[in-house]
Design a protein around this nucleic acid. Sequence first.
DNA 1: ACCTGAACACCGTTCAAGT
DNA 2: ACCTGAACACCGTTCAAGT
Lengths: 199, 199
Amino acid sequence: MRRPVDAVNAHYPEVVLSTRDRLIDAAARLLDQGGPAAVTLREVGRLAGVSHNAPYKHFADKEDLLAAVAARELARPPRPARRGSGSPAEALSQMMHGYVDWAMRHPARFKLTFGSWSVDSAELGAAATAARTALVAAVSAAQASRDLPQGDPERLAALIQATTHGAVDLALSGHLARSGKGHADPKDLVDDLLGYLSS
Amino acid sequence: MRRPVDAVNAHYPEVVLSTRDRLIDAAARLLDQGGPAAVTLREVGRLAGVSHNAPYKHFADKEDLLAAVAARELARPPRPARRGSGSPAEALSQMMHGYVDWAMRHPARFKLTFGSWSVDSAELGAAATAARTALVAAVSAAQASRDLPQGDPERLAALIQATTHGAVDLALSGHLARSGKGHADPKDLVDDLLGYLSS
DNA sequence: ACCTGAACACCGTTCAAGT
DNA sequence: ACCTGAACACCGTTCAAGT
């Protein structure tokens, strides 16, 4: 008979994580496998090797647990572009392509992270601010090298993020127009925008 | 003691709708009032004056009912711009502003309509195609009057839709950057895009 | 401080039965 | 053809109790 600890070790053979971290991991894994409907506190607890209401000792409720998952994801995707990989414009393009790749690979995490939050988690707000700051810096650099038009870099960053986010969201929900031949790719739309902005 | 028919007449004093239509209306109303969590088949039935499982005689399951709500919404928002209201560029701008207004006014319907659908409702697909066709026509007209760059109108329409959709979605979830002073408006970002495209 | 097991109210769905 | 009432499995949350 398998004991709870076996379920844990099957996934984390070498590493010992706190119960809180194991709960977040379990929720993220269930999200990837079966979408939001698959994330039940009972299954989260079972995967983490605890009872179905142990999560209430670490999170206020289910939404609070999901906010922790979103905060962890938000701190991850907008990784700064590799250095020496080209012009500031190319670095910006790669940054947005990375965002698209992450979102298309983990649609449920993407939808969760950019969903509506009634709880205002400080962790979630700080992660969002950090991600935005990195984007504004990349936009400013591209403006300095004359690859983007001048003007408020925050506003231009918001335009680029809106286009990228919208292209991904429409693609994931199947509402993106098949343009001519072949399926339209969110990356193509992002590059279209950057091309129009640089000319 | 109030009888079921009273609940119906309170909302539709003059009009008699089919049970199916009353179920869709009830679901949309609950969606507006309390978000997706408030849409339970039991409450939908109660509002429509039927039992909590009467919906199963009209829809396969809950998702099928929600798909009918989404299809009805999708057929509504992208109303063609008023005639004689200005240049094709202004007509296009007004069309996207109308989209923004509708989405910001009914956030839950917006999220539902552009959410992921595992059911492939023919009704939903037809409504989406019709909406897209109207946008492509407006884009083509603006290209003809030299207010937008040449090229595949479907692809340009996809870019404009992605930006508009993304700006609304980020604004609704609180992830849109406050640009400088005052809160950023999705309409500003749409106009920024159209401005860059026309120059 | 952290966890468990039982319990409560609620929901989606199914089914036998009614007109 | 359309609807009802009872029933089932499931879920989020609470609570008393254990170490």
